[in-house]
Every structure is written in structure tokens, then in C-alpha cells.
Design a protein around this nucleic acid. Structure first.
Lengths: 230, 230
DNA sequence: TAGATTGTTAATCGATTAACAATC
DNA sequence: TAGATTGTTAATCGATTAACAATC
């Protein structure tokens, strides 16, 4: 007996757009507006209206032709679909600079994400607090995960400790890992991993910037020679 | 006269994979290995060999049939292609919790990225240092950007200050913005923006996790009733 | 009613993957 | 030489976008 064999997963690209809709919808709602159309959302966010309509349909909302969607219900629908309608508790592993940053980051409230504790191996860190959150010995993690019913781990250890730490999270029964290490983790299929890869993001920007700086130079030297096109 | 009109841009997905190749290649190189094949890279990173071959070809490297690529040259090729062969200086704007985290993050060395200073509007922060980096008044940014030839800005201000801050960076002559605010910025076409959207990333993980927890519940209750499939 | 907007089906587009000739 | 691997062209796949009927 397999778990929901027919449900085809929502495209990742669609999921990734939902938070930006949510952000806009909350602003509109705060501004007192009650209805919104895909056309309006699409224009605000510079997207294709059909794409917005499909994305929203995934959350289960049904709109009314000529009218659009009730904003209140739409917000609720998106939040529920993302599991952001209830607080999600999480453990953070690796209380280095990046880890402490996320530990102190107030912005996670928006997603109803609550990091309840951090774990580390460094005796200097263990037993201390950071922004009101305890930093505990990583050896306590397996036991606490079970007792506190925590399913989500935020992984911020150094790259060379990443795979071992991931293994520990799996053994501790966590079901999802938000991976900031930049390392491709090997975990069982039933454990979810989502990578936040700063290197990947920076690569896009760096390449495009380097390209432009190069072609700007080229253009400059061409101007001196008397350019004959590319 | 347009800048390089014929150069078709490398697909973003390919660029995003390059840092993971680089990471692996550096490890192999450190291990004393001198040659590597796409097959080997693909197996290590769980990718399609043809895809790896195409990605690497974008950087300009040429391999030898039967042999593969010389690792040293391949690393140099990828690094150059990403503009990571020389140090890139950057300004960080917004020295809140996330900003200070990135300011103190040692991992950027890997990409030859050097944040030289942070800027803020809070008088309490201005004039202080964090991890050896000065936090300056944002009013000084335009002048310093020109004098220090800084092209890249790391944007970590609160969401409601994002657009204004981006505008300042544009006016200051910066050419690229690494945007951590989660806000869709409006900037002139000639300014590059790359978004690191934690909300988007978390959305994927949250939805998939919520889905699984839901279907686990379903299965549980089905077991009691005597399930008749999905 | 007229027409704006939804929901859905079809066409387009681009990225991934497979096939295969060239080559060391 | 034989065959593993590269580089490239063709086929596949999935996401985006366009077209359009249904409807309020």
C-alpha cells in the first residue's frame, strides 16, 4: 500500500512563486482590499496571468469569472497549501556564523517557522544562548527530536561535517532537511532535502557580471580601433 | 552599438550547477588526482553525463576523448568563467541580523567574494565594526562606491526598505545586486539582480512535508476503516 | 446584455536526455 | 586495434504561454 500514488506533485517552480503571491496578497489585504484578479497579481509581479492562475489553482482555490478571488480566502488557501497556517518547530544544527544568523533571523515568523533550539559540537558554544535560543550538545538531538515531535532540521554545519550531520538527523527521525551547506546530501528517499545554495545563486550573478564587464572592455577597445561589429 | 549582440546567455540552470562541479573538482585535485571524466563527475553528483559535458563546454574547456579533462585546467576554466579567479569586492546594505550573518560568513572566500563594508541607517550601528568590517552611514555609499570601484551590492535590508535601497545602489553606479530581501526589485535593465529567496526555498520543503504528513494521517485512518485505495 | 475574468485545452519554448559519429 | 569518452545532433520531456469556451 503506497502513500497517495496518484497525486502528481506540484511543479517546484510553482511552489517557489507562491510566497511572492502571499507577500503581495497580505499587503493588499492590509490595504483594505477584498478582491483581486490574476491579471492584477501578474501585473504587480511582472508575470504571465495564466501562470498565476495555474499556480493559485494548485492550492485548491476557485475564483469567480469577472470577479476574481476573495483575498482573505486566497491567503488562507495558499498558507494552508504550504503548511504555513500552523507553526512548524525546527532544530538548527551548526551554530557557526551562518547558523547563529538564521537563529536570530526574525523574518521566519512570516512563514510560521520557529527554530526552537540549536545544536553544536563545540564545548564553548554548548550551554550558551543566542537570541534567547539554547545551544545544546548535538548528542541530545536524537532524544529531543522524538520527545518534541520535531520534523524539520536546518543544517548550517561546515561542508565537511554536512553528510555526517545529515545522517544524524535521519537517524533521529527528522523528515525534512533545509540544507545550507552547499553539499549534495545522501539521505533515504523518504527524507526531504531542500538546498539553499548561495554558491549557485552567486554563480549566476558573477558570470553575468563578469560577462558584462568583459564586453564593456571589448567595446571600449573597439571604439579605439574602429569597431567592425561582433 | 549594442554590447555583444550575438552571445546567447548560458542557461541559468547550467550556471547554478557549476559551483558543485567546482567543489568536487577541488576535492579531487586536493586528493592528488589529475584527470576526470564527465561520467565520473556525473556519478559523484547524481547527474546525467551529457548534461555535465554541456555545462563544462560552456566554460570553454575542451576535453580529450577516452581521457577526459585535466582537473587543474578545468578548475581554472570554471573559475574564470564565473569571474571567481579574481577577488570581487562588494558592499553590504542593511546590517541587521541577516546582514551581519553574511558579513561574518567565512564561506564567501570560496567564491573569492570580499565584503569590504556594510551600510546602515541606524545611528546605533553606524561607526561600529562587525567581524572586522566597518558599518558606515548609508549616505556615504554613493561616494565610496565610485572611489572604490565596487560593482556588487548585497542587499539585506528589511522588506519595506528594499526598493528604496535598491534605487540608491543603482544611483551609486552599482551593476549587480544580490538580493536577500524577498522583494521583487524594480531596477533598470542594465543592472543585474539575483534573488536569494528563503521563502521560496522553504515553500518547496513545507509543501512537500505537509503533503506527506497529511497522507500519512490519511493512511493511518484508512487502516482503521479498511482502505479502498486512493 | 456586454465584456472581463476564470478554468482548461493546445501550441510553444527551452532544457534535459538519448543517440551516435569522431577521436584518442 | 578496440573501446571509452568527447562533442554534437535529434528526440523527449515538462514548463510556460497562447487560445478559447464557460460564466458571472
Amino acid at each position: 500500500m503506497m502513500a497517495s500514488p496518484k497525486v502528481k506533485p506540484v511543479p517546484e517552480a510553482s511552489l517557489r512563486r507562491l510566497p511572492s503571491y502571499l507577500h503581495l496578497l497580505r499587503r493588499l489585504h492590509a490595504g483594505g482590499r477584498e478582491l483581486v484578479s490574476c491579471t492584477h497579481i501578474a501585473e504587480s509581479l511582472d508575470l504571465n496571468p495564466t501562470q498565476v492562475r495555474k499556480d493559485l489553482a494548485y492550492t485548491g482555490i476557485v475564483g469567480r469569472p469577472r470577479i476574481g478571488y476573495p483575498i482573505r480566502a486566497l491567503i488562507a488557501s495558499v498558507e494552508h497549501f504550504l503548511g504555513w497556517d500552523n507553526t512548524t518547530d525546527a532544530f538548527l544544527v551548526g551554530a557557526g556564523s551562518l547558523g547563529r544568523a538564521l537563529l536570530g533571523y526574525a523574518g521566519f515568523q512570516r512563514y510560521n517557522l520557529n527554530i526552537v533550539a540549536a545544536f553544536d559540537v563545540d564545548p564553548e558554544r554548548i550551554g550558551t544562548h543566542w537570541r534567547g535560543k539554547p545551544i545544546l550538545d548535538v548528542d541530545e538531538l536524537p532524544d529531543l527530536a522524538g520527545r518534541m515531535h520535531v520534523h524539520l532540521g536546518v543544517l548550517t554545519v561546515p561542508a565537511d561535517a554536512a553528510q555526517d550531520a545529515a545522517h544524524l538527523l535521519v537517524l533521529s527521525g527528522l523528515k525534512a532537511i533545509w540544507n545550507f551547506t552547499g553539499v549534495a546530501l545522501e539521505v533515504p528517499r523518504e527524507v526531504l532535502v531542500e538546498d539553499v545554495d548561495l554558491g549557485a545563486s552567486l554563480a549566476v550573478l558573477s558570470n553575468r557580471l563578469a560577462q558584462r564587464l568583459r564586453s564593456a572592455e571589448e567595446e571600449e577597445s573597439e571604439r579605439h580601433v574602429g569597431g567592425h561589429g561582433a
